[in-house]
Design a protein around this nucleic acid. Structure first.
Length: 551
RNA sequence: GCGCUCAUAGCUCAACGGAUAGAGCACUUGACUACGGAUCAAGAGGUUGCAGGUUCGAAUCCUGCUGAGCGCACCA
């Protein structure tokens, strides 16, 4: 019996009490069932009586009593207690709790998947760093979190399109091209241009690929550096992302929005909605109607479209392509954009509280030898995604970056992470998986296979009960991670699961020693181990981290 | 000046409005003739930045304050 099953059973109990006229409340849509921290509080606890008490006009404990009567009649429920202000503490019988292990093993990779977001079409945009340099550490955080986000959302049934927005039009690209040209000609990088090894590298790659480029007239030369340099840089970014295990379904070019007339069309559509006005020769969107602190220019007095106008066209493109929710993941330096982005949605006639979501992620600080390493894309002295992978590997990087809430700034100590000590929590989790894999190999060597006549009631120790409880939590954790858009919950969960397994390991021998017989308990524990291995592997996959058989 | 975000153990981080705020690291003390000791057990470590408010209950929600980061273009 999973917490979800129990939740439904409690809902049914509420309905029953309502129908019997004992409780005058609306049946709640969702009943919370959680694993109490304190084991004296049973296998599961619900606060539903506390929440219904006010509406019912009865003391919480009286409501709890009504429900407890009904819950005690459910098959598999061993005990129901009322505790504290009105919590219901529920204990399952051992066989019912243990049956979950087999359920998990049989579901395999599908265990944990749920329908919390079924049918929701989400466009998830992340990273989207300018293609004028390598992805830096902030982008790496988004690559890790965004990719996990996509996996988590899909596991909850959402239809997700991942997207990288390439700012391949405009002034920054011109500066990038000019910087390449300068480097190729051995000249000083122009004021405000890009410097760094990668500029020299790309310039060289470009002149190697197109030998006659330096003989062209300046203007033509610059154009070649612009188009070809951009291609090389984007290819670099794609390679880095690929090596990082991060996949984008769509690489969306800003330039195509301008070239196709999509920007003009977007402005027209916003005008039809009545939120566009003209002033001092420029065309504005009245974003202040929807919470922005000033109106935003779409077309400047000189006739040029702004970056903001392209943003509006891009949002509409996402919606036109079928996304019900446009989910943006932006760095903290872009938090000022949230209101204007949401206003675009509202100005287009959409629901700004539903059709658009903007997640802001805090910065990543890096320490080396106890001092902060400063990073500046434009200054050249940068920590790139490739550096991070080289230093700590994809698994440790993805796990470490994805295990914290994006609301938190995180500090990564390069010395610690390069030393590969067990401070990298990913090792703790992966080690648990390696141990289970080892156990599986060992069992196979001994000729032991899991018996079909699984006897779940034999899993009766506190360590087995705790581990089973953890396994049962997984689908709920996944659903919450999806609903709250917080993939880090998966990592936090996995650490708890790994800890529960390590404790089980220390207290519950699985395989027979010496000449001991293979017993039903051996088989039952093998089911439990395999179930745990399955969930650990499923969770690690959601984070884009490998589940090693050996370490 | 205005706005957004953040503030939890010495450090790095958790905690759908729920019961005694949890992990890891570091520190102290134990457990290897058991399937992988990259593990486990025990101990110590907190006025959840400060002050009010909302309620059965607040780290969580509201207000004010303090501190930090970031943002406030007819730039991209």
């Amino acid at each position: 019996m999973t917490p979800a099953d129990l939740s439904q059973a409690i809902q049914a109990a509420v309905s029953s009490a309502v129908e019997a006229g004992e409780l005058a409340v609306a049946v709640p849509e969702h009943v919370t069932v959680e694993r109490p921290k304190n084991r004296d509080h049973g296998d599961y606890a619900t606060n539903v009586a506390l929440q219904l008490a006010k509406a019912a006009g009865k003391p919480p404990r009286a409501v709890a009593e009504l429900l407890a009567e009904r819950l005690r009649g459910i098959t598999g429920v061993a005990k129901v207690d009322i505790a504290g202000p009105g919590f219901l503490n529920i204990t399952l019988d051992t066989a019912t709790a243990g049956a979950l292990a087999r359920t998990v093993v049989e579901a395999g990779e599908a265990y944990g998947r749920n329908d919390a977001l079924k049918g929701l079409k989400i466009n998830l945009e992340f990273v989207s760093a300018n293609p004028t340099g390598p992805i830096h550490i902030g982008g790496v955080r988004w690559a890790a979190v965004g990719d996990s986000m996509a996996r988590v959302l899909r596991a909850s049934g959402a239809d997700v399109t991942t997207e990288y927005y390439l700012n391949d039009a405009g002034v920054q690209i011109s500066k990038f091209a000019a910087s390449l040209q300068a480097a190729a000609n051995g000249r000083e990088v122009p004021e405000g241009g890009y410097v760094g090894e990668y500029i020299v590298d790309i310039a060289k790659a470009l002149t190697d690929a197109i030998p006659g480029v330096l003989d062209l007239p300046e203007a033509e030369q610059l154009e070649v550096f612009r188009t070809e340099g951009l291609k090389l840089m984007v290819a670099e970014i794609k390679r880095s992302m690929d090596e990082f295990g991060t996949h984008f379904d769509v690489w969306f070019s800003e330039k195509t929005l301008h070239d196709s007339g999509a920007v003009e069309k977007a402005i027209e559509r916003l005008r039809e909605q009545g939120h566009v006005f003209e002033q001092d020769g420029a065309v504005f969107l009245r974003t202040t109607d929807f919470g922005d602190d000033k109106d935003r220019v779409l077309i400047k007095a000189d006739g040029d479209k702004t970056y903001f106008a392209a943003d509006a066209a891009y949002y509409l493109s996402k919606r036109d392509r079928g996304a019900e929710v446009a989910l943006y993941m932006l760095g903290a330096d872009h938090h000022g954009y949230v209101n204007r982005l949401k206003a675009i949605s509202a100005c287009a006639g959409d629901d700004m509280d539903h059709n658009i979501e903007v997640k802001i992620g805090q910065f990543v600080k890096m320490l080396r030898d106890g001092e902060e390493v400063r990073m500046s894309k434009r200054a050249g002295n940068i920590i790139t995604i490739d550096d991070v992978v080289e230093w700590i590997g994809v698994d440790a990087a993805r796990y470490t970056l994805a295990r914290s809430s994006t609301d938190s700034t995180i500090t990564l100590d390069i010395n610690v992470l390069t030393s590969q000590t067990n401070e990298n929590r990913v090792f703790y989790v992966q080690y648990a998986h390696a141990r289970m894999s080892s156990l599986r190999r060992k069992a196979a060597d001994m000729g032991i296979t899991r018996a079909a006549d699984y006897k779940p009631e034999l899993l009766s120790t506190e360590w087995e009960n705790e581990l089973l409880g953890k396994l049962a939590e997984f689908p709920g954790v996944l659903a919450e991670a999806g609903q709250f858009r917080q993939p880090h919950r998966v990592a936090v969960y996995l650490e708890g699961l790994a800890a529960a397994y390590h404790r089980f390991w220390d207290n519950c021998p699985v395989l027979p020693k010496g000449d001991d017989e293979v017993t039903d308990l051996t088989h039952a524990r093998l089911w439990l181990v395999e179930a745990t291995r399955t969930v650990l592997a499923n969770g690690l996959t959601l984070l884009g981290v490998t589940a090693p058989e050996r370490m």
